[in-house]
Design a protein around this nucleic acid. Sequence first.
DNA 1: TTGAAAGCGCTAACAG
DNA 2: CTGTTAGCGCTTTCAA
Lengths: 344, 344
Amino acid sequence: MPDIGIKELAQQLGISTASVSRALNKPERVSSAMRERVRQAAKEYGYRTNMIGSSLRTSRTKNIMAIIPDLSDTFNSGVISSMEATAAEAGYSVLFGDSQGLRERELRYGDLVQQKQADGVIFFGPKPPFDEHILTSENRSMPPMVNSCEVTDPKGFMVRGNPVPYVTVDNTRAADELVSHLIENGHKKIAVITGGKNTPSACQRLDGYRNAHNRARLAISEQHIFEGDYTIDSGEALTEKILKLEDRPTAIFCMSDESALGSMHTLHKHQLKIPDDIALAGFDDIRFANYVTPALTTVSQPVFDIGRICTEMLIAQIEGRPIENNQIILPHKLILRESTNRVL
Amino acid sequence: MPDIGIKELAQQLGISTASVSRALNKPERVSSAMRERVRQAAKEYGYRTNMIGSSLRTSRTKNIMAIIPDLSDTFNSGVISSMEATAAEAGYSVLFGDSQGLRERELRYGDLVQQKQADGVIFFGPKPPFDEHILTSENRSMPPMVNSCEVTDPKGFMVRGNPVPYVTVDNTRAADELVSHLIENGHKKIAVITGGKNTPSACQRLDGYRNAHNRARLAISEQHIFEGDYTIDSGEALTEKILKLEDRPTAIFCMSDESALGSMHTLHKHQLKIPDDIALAGFDDIRFANYVTPALTTVSQPVFDIGRICTEMLIAQIEGRPIENNQIILPHKLILRESTNRVL
DNA sequence: TTGAAAGCGCTAACAG
DNA sequence: CTGTTAGCGCTTTCAA
C-alpha cells in the first residue's frame, strides 16, 4: 500500500475526487454517510492531503515566515517558541530565518513570501523585508505582515499610506525607568552598552537613557556610551573599556541581559563587587537573569505575549479577519534585583 | 505593475514559458542572449517564481522540517541557528516544530512531511515521527530523515532493515568522563539530576554515571538519582530535595547546564559555597556556563557541527547524493571550570 | 448532495 | 536552442 492520492482514494470508493475533498475539508457540505465513508477510507489507506496541490489551488501554504535577527539569542528564543506554539495551534507552521540584522538577508527571506513559500511575514527590523521598489509602487499587492520588537515609528512603518501592524514594548520608557532607578540610587555616572546604532530598540532605549538624565538634570558624558550588539561578547569586551575610563562610572546599563552577563563576567574578573563597587542592570529578563550572582536588575518584556500576539495578528490578516487594534504596545516591568540594590 | 507570472513574462517577451523557466533555472540550456533577455525582464517586471507551481511539478518544496523538543532551550537554540544557516546556504528553509517531547506532537509534525510541506525531517527523538504502521509496512516510501541528539541505538533506528542516519555525541562516555573527574576529586556521593526517563540522551548519560562509579568500585545510591527534565526549574527544585537528604552528597551532576544553573541558584540560596561545600557540574557548555559564578564545569557539545552536519546529511538525501558516513558521533570535550575545582 | 471538468503556475518530455 | 503540450494534486465552479 504505497502513497495514495485523492484520485486513487476516490476510485477505491467509486466516488468523485470532489466528494473526497469536500468530505475532508468541508464536512458540512456532504451527507454524513459520505463523510464517514471517506474518513474511514482515508484513515485506512493512510491518505494524506498533498499540500502542494492544495496550495496551488488555494494559494495558501499554511506557512508563516519569521525573520529574526539572531536565532540563538535567548530573548528571541522565547519569542520564537511562543510564535511556533501559537501558529501550530492555528494550523500554521513557521519558517524561521536568521537575518543577522543584515538587510540583504532580510530581503532574501522576504523573497520567500513573494515566492509563495509562506502566506505572510513577521519581521524584527526597521522596515519590511521587501525592495524599496515594491514598497512604494502602487497597485502591487503587499503580503500580510507584522512588525515586532524592532519597530521604528510609533505610527507604524507606512507602506503606501497604510501603517504596518506591530507589536512591541515602550523601549524608551522602559529604559528611562531603569536608568531613573539607577539615578535614584545615587548614581551620577552611568555607562551604557547599547544594542547598535541601527537597531531601533537600542536607539529607543538610548533615548530613554537620555530622558532619564535630562529629567534629573544630570549631564551625559558621550564617552559613557558604548556601542554593543546585544551579545555576551560585546558586554564582556566593552566592560573592559569602561573599566579603563579614568572617570569610572558607578553603574553600567546593558541594553540586553546577554550583554549584562558578559559585563558581569568582566566585573568579576576584575574583583569588583556588584553592586557595591559598581551597579549593573540589563534588559529583557531572560530566564538566566534571576539565576546569576548577583541576580540581575532588568526590565522584563512579555516574551510570550509578544510572540503570541504578533502571530495571531498575522494569521488574522492572512485569513482576512478584521484586526481591532493593530498597533500594540505591551507592558514591560522593571525588575529590581541584587545587582543594583545598593544601600546608600 | 501587479504580480506577474511566468506566462505573462513569456508573453511580454514573445517567447514560451518553457524558455523563461529554463533561462531562470537551467541557464546552461539556453543561449546567452535568451538568458540575459529573460533575466533582465524578470528583474524589470519583478517576476518571482511561484514556488507552489514549481513544487507541484517537481515534488520538492525546498523546506526542511526540524522537530525539536524545546525551542527555547539554550542548547537547542544553538543547533537551530546552525541548522538554519546551513539550510539557507543550500537554498532551503527550515520549519521548526516544538514537540515538547510528546509523541503526539512529533507525529503531527511528521505529518507535515507526508503532506509534502517539507522534503525531509530532522528529529530529536527516540524514533521517527511516523506511525508504527507506516514505519513497518513494506512498499511505503519513507521520506528523507536524520536523527539527532536523541539517538537510541548505536546502529541507528532501524526502519525496515535500514538504519536511520544520525548525528550525535557519545553521551555515555561524556558523562562517564565528567563523573570520573568528580570521583577523582574525591567525591564519593554524587547526586545526579537527569533529563528524563524517556530521553535517550539522559539515559545514556545515566549509563555513563553508572559506568564511572562501577569502574571506581564506588556504590551508587539510587536515592541520589533525581529525575529532571533538563530545565532550570527542575534543577532548582530537585536541588532543594537533594539538600534535604540526610546523607548529603558532596557533588551534583546536572545533565544540562540549564538545570545546573537552577541548581546553582538553590545552592547559593542556601549559602553553600561552590565548589567547597558542594561541587556542581553541568552538560552542554551553553554560552552562559562560563559566565556564571563560579564558572561551571561541563561537557561541551559541538553545537554548531551538530546542526550543520545533520542538515547537510538531510539535504544530501533529499537531493539523492550519496552519503559516505551516515552514523556520526561527534567529539565532545570535558570543560573543567571553577565549580568543581576543589583542592583536596 | 454529488459529479464532471477546468485550471491554479510551473517544468519536463518531446518535437522541431 | 526553442516551442508545444501535458500534467503534477488539488479545489471549486457549474450542472445535474
